[in-house]
């Protein structure tokens, strides 16, 4: 049996220690940023879906929105939807449900992009800036597919 997490003394010298503490603080800032980004994205999306469905119910007495997203990539979908939201004649349940889907899809996307900026600007960690950039590029590319 190995001892369960043996107590250890920290031999790290003071300047290195300060560096470690700074890194831990930055890491925690990033955790808060990522955590709140994810939470707000999901809440926003749920709120938009519920709004859209409630509107449809008031308008037609049914909760079912019958349409497909076809023949466009995510960014075309998003632009079309933002236009619908901003145009009084086009705004309606569909615009809200579409926006909810867009918000949901954007949640992990923005998480990746903001992590990349954080790794680059705050931590100057180029290794992880490159990793997150790779993920960001692949996701951007896949969202442009149609």
């Amino acid at each position: 049996m190995k001892p369960k997490h043996a107590p250890h003394t920290d031999p790290t010298p003071m300047p290195a220690r300060a560096k470690l503490e700074r890194e831990a603080r930055q890491e925690h800032e990033m955790e808060l940023l990522v955590g709140y980004l994810l939470l707000s994205g999901v809440l926003l999306s749920i709120l938009l879906v519920v709004t859209g469905m409630a509107w449809e119910y008031v308008k037609t007495g049914s909760l079912h929105l019958n349409y497909l997203i076809a023949g466009m990539n995510f960014f075309q979908f998003l632009v079309g939807d933002l236009r619908a939201i901003l145009t009084p004649s086009l705004i309606g349940p569909r615009a809200f449900v579409n926006l909810a889907i867009a918000a949901l899809l954007f949640t992990p996307y923005i998480r990746v992009v903001s992590s990349m900026v954080f790794f680059a600007a705050a931590e100057k960690n180029w290794k992880y800036t490159a990793f997150t950039a790779f993920v960001g590029v692949v996701l951007t590319y896949s969202l442009f597919l149609r």
């Binding site: 749920i46 019958n66 990539n73 995510f74 449900v97 889907i101 992990p108 597919l145």
Partner: peptide, 28 residues
């Protein structure tokens, strides 16, 4: 899981398999 699902979703959206009328109640 979230980022992985997004990568897959983009393919299904592009193929026209995402039906917002069904997705809406399911998400909630």
């Amino acid at each position: 899981i979230g980022v992985t699902a997004l990568a897959g979703t983009s393919i299904y959206i592009a193929a026209g398999y995402v039906d917002p009328g069904l997705v809406a109640p399911v998400i909630v």
